[in-house]
């Protein structure tokens, strides 16, 4: 008995010693003999699908910044969809705080993001707020040429984003959420509103050029009593504000 245990222990001693030696040599000498090559994974066919798949892309609004419940309009929207459809709804929220349209354009270029888009039944997008309002830091420069520059770039980006989405998914309904003016009650609110309206109009034009991409206005929702619907940073919506957006989008979704 004792002998047997001793022998087994000695064998394990040698095994672990070998493992240790291997680990050290692998850590140092192990020059890459097998470089894993970047995979060109083919986008798989939709797997056993049950219920709706929602993919949310965009910035802090998609993330739900400012909502005390942490849901954001996407969370509320998913809850409503679950209730209405009586089906499981799978949400993939890919929103990133502070994301601008050029960054989203990069994001939709990633293989895995494309695979998610491919699987989606409904895609919701919020973008542009950080392009125009510079992350809520300050109000845009009113100098027209700067603004035009920003806007042209932005329009190019969303066009590219929509092209990517449509490339990978011809069937999903895409809801592109427009901008509201959080600064409407401030000093230059009127002029700001004009800029935002123009911005939204151009965005709607780009959306209209693609099939099944619906521009969803939110400007009117926040036009009166904007402060009731804004979070304390006076830029992001609060819980009530998100609910308004979610209800509007929910009413548009068909299945």
């Amino acid at each position: 008995m004792v002998r047997l245990v001793t022998i087994i222990a000695a064998l394990f001693f040698l095994l672990w010693l070998a493992g240790l030696g291997w680990a050290v040599s692998e850590y140092y000498a192990g020059k890459q003999d097998q470089v894993p090559k970047a995979s060109e994974q083919k986008i798989e066919k939709a797997e056993n699908k049950k219920g709706l798949t929602v993919v949310a892309l965009g910035d802090s609004l998609t993330r739900g910044t400012g909502d005390e419940t942490g849901k954001g309009y996407v969370g509320v929207l998913v809850d409503e969809l679950k209730e209405k459809t009586k089906q499981p709804v799978q949400l993939t929220n890919l929103g990133i705080n502070g994301q601008r349209s050029d960054q989203l354009r990069n994001q939709v270029g990633q293989t895995e993001v494309q695979r998610q888009i491919h699987k989606a039944d409904v895609i919701v997008v919020t973008i542009g707020g950080n392009d125009l309002f510079r992350g809520g830091q300050g109000i845009i420069e009113f100098k027209n040429e700067d603004l035009t520059g920003i806007q042209t770039k932005y329009l190019e980006n969303i066009k590219a984003i929509f092209e990517q989405i449509r490339n990978h998914n011809q069937n999903a309904n895409v809801f592109f959420i427009g901008l509201y003016n959080p600064f409407i009650e401030l000093g230059e609110g009127k002029e700001m509103s004009k800029v935002v309206r123009q911005w939204n109009y151009q965005s709607a034009e780009v959306s209209a050029a693609f099939p099944k991409i619906v521009f969803v206005p939110t400007f009117d929702l926040f036009e009166l009593k904007v402060n009731d619907y804004l979070y304390s940073d006076k830029f992001h919506p609060n819980t009530k504000g998100y609910r308004l957006i979610a209800e509007r989008v929910a009413s548009l979704i068909t299945w």
Binding site: G19, L20, P36
Partner: peptide
Amino acid sequence: SDVRLLSLWEFLLMDLGLVWF
């Protein structure tokens, strides 16, 4: 740049060696 692909059993044997040490 130096990333290498291992099988899990190889990785585990190395891990066990390190834990043993």
